[in-house]
Nucleic acid binder design. Structure first.
Lengths: 116, 116
DNA sequence: ACGCTAGTTCGAGATCTGTCAAACTACGAG
DNA sequence: CTCGTAGTTTGACAGATCTCGAACTAGCGT
């Protein structure tokens, strides 16, 4: 018997369990420039950033919106820590469900233009 | 000297060249259930299908719309042949730009739920 | 208690998206 | 030439999405 997937940590905000993650939702979450940027910054190893650390070109409320889309799609996990909220990629969960997907998206987003 | 990327074949409909394909557009194109289904059916080796061969659960005009989104994102190529239009995946182009991306999306869409 | 910082909630607006029906074009067969 | 098949175009509509500003909540430091 173990903790249900939906509440991984006491301070974690509600997120879909492994069986609730839908491929279309993940792709849709990654298809926005702002969110793709969040994901690539989060991909740096050991990255655990609060929302405002990203210096996104949008207001705070828009930022909240994008982080929620990512969390509800199952791409990131958000944990409250003090007055901020720490964000991490759900790398392992995504790798288990969709092997290679996140890696290739990150490679595509980071390694710009093979022929350049 | 060779034919510009944007007009690969005489009968091919206008499509983005390699340098015009944007990752966000590809992900967005793949993020719709109807279009994802088109892509997976097109992924069968040697698949070259006309639009109506897919028996999509939408009307013809909606179908036209989805094929256009896929073509303009650079995911498929459409070539007129007689009265129909043949669709093929731009596998090589996508593999060159975003190695592993299409493969992992297809694997994710086809191989449903690893733990089932 | 007070204020600062981080983030949320609540409209609201503009644009985009998926869908349809109806009328249309284009090609091939006969 | 006429008909049927394949697909497009147009206009419309409902719902989603991205964005903002303003007001709000919650925790930390002093």
């Amino acid at each position: 018997m173990r903790v249900p997937e939906t509440e991984t940590a006491p301070e974690a905000l509600p997120e879909p369990g492994l069986d609730e993650i839908r491929l279309e939702a993940v792709l849709h979450a990654l298809a926005d420039p702002v969110r793709l940027r969040i994901v690539t910054e989060l991909a740096r190893p050991g990255s655990e950033l609060n929302c405002l650390a990203f210096e996104l070109p949008v207001t705070k409320s828009t930022s909240t919106h994008h982080f929620r889309v990512l969390r509800e799609a199952g791409v990131i996990r958000q944990v409250r820590r003090g007055t901020s909220k720490m964000n991490t990629l759900r790398r392992d969960d995504l790798a288990q469900l969709y092997p290679g997907l996140l890696e290739s998206v990150l490679a595509a987003a980071l390694g710009r233009r093979p022929q350049d």
